[in-house]
Write a protein that binds this DNA or RNA. Structure first.
Lengths: 235, 235
DNA sequence: TAGTGGTCTAGACCACGGT
DNA sequence: CCGTGGTCTAGACCACTAG
């Protein structure tokens, strides 16, 4: 897969950011320096930087330079701010089920393809807490050849999406979601410590990724009484 | 406010699309034609078209041309698909309160600025139905000098955002949202015809617009039992 | 004033789609 | 084959930031 020059520069910079060689707040080399370093013209450099801006990796300041930005997987709902920022406080995660290989046996809001159904699945379930308050129960599934690599593995910074991005170079490219207010069932209410039958926010997500046939399915059950789900978006 | 050349071309094309001179599916003049028509180089034309692609107005096809796309105000939550597409069926809207001038007297999830608080507000409230089923109660506020123009007016195609875009050239540029699953109160439940105390999805939104000091505040109460709120996003 | 990013020109060659 | 969009070069001048 031959990359164009701007794509080469783009992925080179992206890697440096993801591997921590360029940290949040650091300034990139100036556009003219990049021209010289990579022997390309400014138009090409700017095309690469424009893409990084659109993907939320850097921000530009006229007259100053381009700086690495706090990066969000800025798609979908919860992940817009990430769970921790969405609730804005100290967050703990408890694995109810560490990543395991499994068969498909679930009823989800979104339906996997035939190809996915016949494949092996990876599954894990987490309870997300603010301090000691459990606020979200989260189940995740995906079907892939490479699931073995995930079984029993830890996540980079405790983040599944960071792991995908850094270890497997898979980026989230889109999502479909469905939102429902429901009565909490017994199992859910016991985990997130509300009364059975209390209103609960149920979010079903199908994430699309840069790997064409890889989708990630999540079912979230949120106690929004104390901590509403926050979300922001800008063009 | 002086526009750059690519901004001129961009807004010229955007207007043609919004005013129906260029319809969905129509091909734009080729990049080379645009170069000649507006006496600019291809780099500049492409910058304008790139922006239109990013804003979702057009899509490009290598070897064929650039075509006007089905446009969504692709921000926020409900408006991602628009109410009608989000539920995917025949939709009716009942005005419980037509647009009127009012004073600020509400408790919202997001707090207006001092400037907004001292200004006059426009308010309207709608009940959104799928067929005869009421599924969403929607209240909207905003503070602006030009609210008089809205008082008692009809909306373009029944859409407030289309009206903003076509009549006032104001685009939605971002949003902040909060989601809560709540017990339905008496007034809400009577309108959307569910039992008082049933779970209901409460969405609070603060829309940001291309007019720097103009924000639009919405409070939505959704019956998600029969029709979950749908949402999709792609990069 | 020096250095940065923002806009723009006038070309060139390539890759894709349809005739 | 031609016309389309995709990539790229080698410049130029402007607007902003900071010392």
């Amino acid at each position: 897969m031959k990359q164009t020059r701007y794509q080469e520069l783009e992925s080179m910079l992206k890697e440096k950011i993801q591997h921590g060689l360029l940290k949040v707040g650091d300034y990139l080399p100036s556009e003219n320096e990049l021209c010289i370093q990579y022997s390309i013209t400014r138009t090409t450099v700017r095309k690469a930087l424009d893409n990084l801006v659109n993907e939320g990796y850097i921000e530009k300041q006229h007259g100053k330079g381009s700086r690495v930005k706090e990066h969000r997987n800025s798609l979908g709902l919860l992940n817009v701010k990430g769970f921790s920022e969405a609730v804005g406080m100290n967050v703990n995660t408890i694995f109810l089920q560490k990543p395991i290989k499994t068969k498909w046996n679930q009823q989800l809001a979104f339906h996997p393809s035939e190809m996915e159904l016949q494949s092996n699945w990876l599954y894990f379930e987490r309870l997300r807490c603010v301090g000691d308050d459990p606020v979200m129960l989260e189940s995740n599934w995906f079907a892939d050849q490479e699931i073995k690599k995930f079984v029993g593995q830890e996540f980079v910074d405790g983040s599944f999406f960071k792991t995908l991005s850094q270890k497997y170079l898979v980026e989230i490219t889109g999502s479909e979601q469905e939102l429902r207010a429901e009565y909490a069932d017994e199992r859910t209410s016991s985990y997130i410590k509300i009364e059975t039958g209390a209103p609960i926010l149920h979010i079903s997500i199908k994430f699309h990724t840069s790997k064409p046939d890889l989708f990630i399915y999540s079912e979230l059950y949120c106690n929004t009484m104390k901590y509403p789900i926050g979300n922001s978006y800008h063009l």
